[in-house]
Design a protein around this nucleic acid. Structure first.
Length: 519
RNA sequence: GGCGGCGUAGCCAAGUGGUAAGGCAGAGGUUUGCAAAACCUCCACGCACCAGUUCGACUCUGGUCGCCGCCUCCA
């Protein structure tokens, strides 16, 4: 398996530190607000990476922290007259809810800063003792010039950094680049006792302390958003290597690309809280199936930027790419439903056109028809290549088309070949569900939920639709097609599309495009 | 100013030295009483532009243009 390592800026072969085991640390959220689509992308990407590593049979320890002590949390809490840790707890719950809806698995360990003060203080003490850090008035700073390799992760030159430093420099720091490991307490801020007096941890030290606690001084993978590479990850690395040895800490660095917001009038810009142009996961999920967001995100390789298209309308913004993803999901679930029901029906009796297995056919020909026969291998090859979910979804598209084709007309294929191919397709769908976290819902439930939602949006009364369908059925049986078509047209005007099944029953869906004012 | 990324059909998006996956939209067809769903066929002689390397380049090298980001909190 090959992955792109930020530190070496190249795709490299992945070799776990310890055969059969993988330790991965992903920087989690600072919980002072609801998570937006950008966060969703990061956590979906790493969820898939963890799922795939597990699929390969590796014993993965997935650690994703929650930062619950931080300047922004304190500020927000003061604004709202709330205790900082209470506010953090509230948004942690919201975060967990968002993750669950997106289909992300729960990490093995989800450490909080507030729960790891002893580890953090011990690490700072070690850095002070080894002269990698110094104390000024109750603050503790990391001395960047005591770590020769500083800047190597994010490819920064120290002199250039200093030239570009725009923040006002604290004159007590030896170098402008030095960063706080421990901050002395200020009035009205939460604080904890330490050897340097009451205070709280700096931003970067938590990840160093907590990754060491749960994964050891050296571990395999460290992930996060691209913007975290510098300075956050550079600083983590400096702290950890200064205390744990020159080759310690993360062995590979993975960084996901960003979400840009694209609107007709403003063009593209990064989605971020500071720009105020973000859409929260919950607000997007109020309009669309969370799984549609997941499918949308996995449609682009995790390191590439994604333009999140916004169609600004008087009645509120819509997300055309999510609408497309949701329609696609409808197709996928309809197909899954067909596959499962065909496989469970007796002897594949529902299949048309499949020739009975004869002696001449037994043992000859392909056991499983392409492309289903090679799905597993090709899926693995895509994922082995730096977790290429976009390529994997291309393979899924072929698999779904083959399933429908086979189910529509088996074209004289031996029945056992059809059965085996369907079994292979089903197995492929299981793999997709396990690794990508897609199509794991009950198809019937998904389709029903979606139709209900569309009905509600258009004020369609399902009982009335059923009555109209019954009336049309009677008309059809009486061969009164004029009347039947009139009823169909009536429903169609409401946005209801009828689908006559071969068995004489009629199913219906709500059309997804807005109904045009005049035909 | 330094560093990094991106630019592939109307739109989304893989590919990254051997002659352009997949999806959406569109056109035609099969099927259907009519539809819908589903399937099939078609849809980039070309991968921002220019110049090189090569038997061969979307893929490598150099340059140009455009967009985004990091260097400050940020997924």
């Amino acid at each position: 398996m090959r992955l792109y390592d930020t530190a070496t800026r190249a795709k490299v072969a992945f070799e776990p530190l310890e055969a059969g085991k993988v330790g991965i640390y992903v920087c989690g959220p600072t919980v002072y607000d609801y998570c937006h689509v950008g966060h969703a992308r990061c956590y979906v990407a790493f969820d898939v990476i963890v799922r795939y590593l597990r699929q390969l049979g590796l014993a993965v320890t997935y650690v994703r922290n929650v930062t619950d002590i931080d300047d922004k949390i304190i500020r927000r809490a003061q604004e709202q007259g709330e205790e900082p840790l209470a506010l953090a707890a509230r948004f942690t719950d919201a975060f967990h809810e968002d993750m669950r809806r997106l289909g992300n698995r729960v990490p093995d360990v989800e450490p909080t800063v507030s729960g790891h003060l002893p580890e953090i203080i011990a690490l700072v003490e070690r850095l002070v003792a080894s002269d990698h850090a110094y104390v000024v008035d109750g603050d503790v700073y990391f001395a960047v010039d005591r770590f020769a390799d500083y800047g190597a992760l994010a490819a920064r030159q120290l002199d250039e950094l200093q030239a570009g430093a725009r923040v006002e420099v604290d004159p007590r720091k030896r170098s402008p680049l030095d960063f706080a490991l421990w901050k002395a307490a200020k009035p009205l801020e939460p604080s904890w006792p330490s050897p340097w007096g009451a205070g709280r941890p700096g931003w970067h030290i938590e990840c160093s302390a907590m990754s060491e606690r749960y994964l050891g001084a050296t571990f395999d993978l460290h992930g996060g958003g691209m913007d975290l590479a510098f300075p956050h990850h550079e600083n983590e690395r400096a702290q950890s290597r200064a205390s744990g040895g020159a080759t310690s800490f993360a062995r590979y660095w993975l960084h996901n690309g960003f979400i840009n917001v694209r609107t007709a009038e403003l063009g593209e810009e990064k989605m971020s809280k500071s720009l105020g142009n973000f859409f929260t996961i919950r607000e997007v999920c109020a309009r669309h199936e969370p799984e549609a967001l997941r499918l949308f995100l996995l449609g682009t390789h995790y390191r590439n930027p994604i333009a999140f298209e916004i169609d600004a309308r008087p009645e509120g913004p819509t997300f055309p790419l999510l609408e497309e993803a949701e329609r696609r999901l409808g197709y996928a679930y309809r197909t899954v439903q067909r596959v499962r029901s065909a496989r469970s029906s007796a002897a594949g009796a529902a299949l048309s056109g499949a020739a009975p297995m004869g002696p001449a056919l037994a043992g000859s020909g392909p056991a499983v028809l392409p492309p289903a026969d090679a799905f597993r291998e090709r899926f693995a090859a895509a994922m082995d290549d730096d977790f290429n979910t976009a390529a994997a979804l291309g393979l899924l598209a072929e698999l779904l088309a083959q399933a429908n084709k086979l189910l529509d007309q088996a074209k004289g294929q031996p029945r056992d070949v059809v059965a085996r191919t369907l079994a292979a397709i089903d197995a492929g769908l299981e793999t997709v569900s396990a690794v990508l976290g897609l199509l794991g819902d009950d198809p019937q439930a998904f389709l029903q939920r979606r139709r209900d939602k569309l009905c509600q949006a258009r004020a369609i009364d399902a009982a009335q639709v059923a009555a109209q369908i019954a009336a049309r059925g009677a008309a059809r049986r009486a061969k009164d097609f004029k009347q039947a078509d009139a009823l169909r047209a009536e429903l169609s005007a409401l946005g209801v599309e009828l689908m006559d099944r071969p068995d004489g029953t009629t199913d219906w869906v709500v059309r997804e495009e807005p109904v045009s004012a005049t035909p």
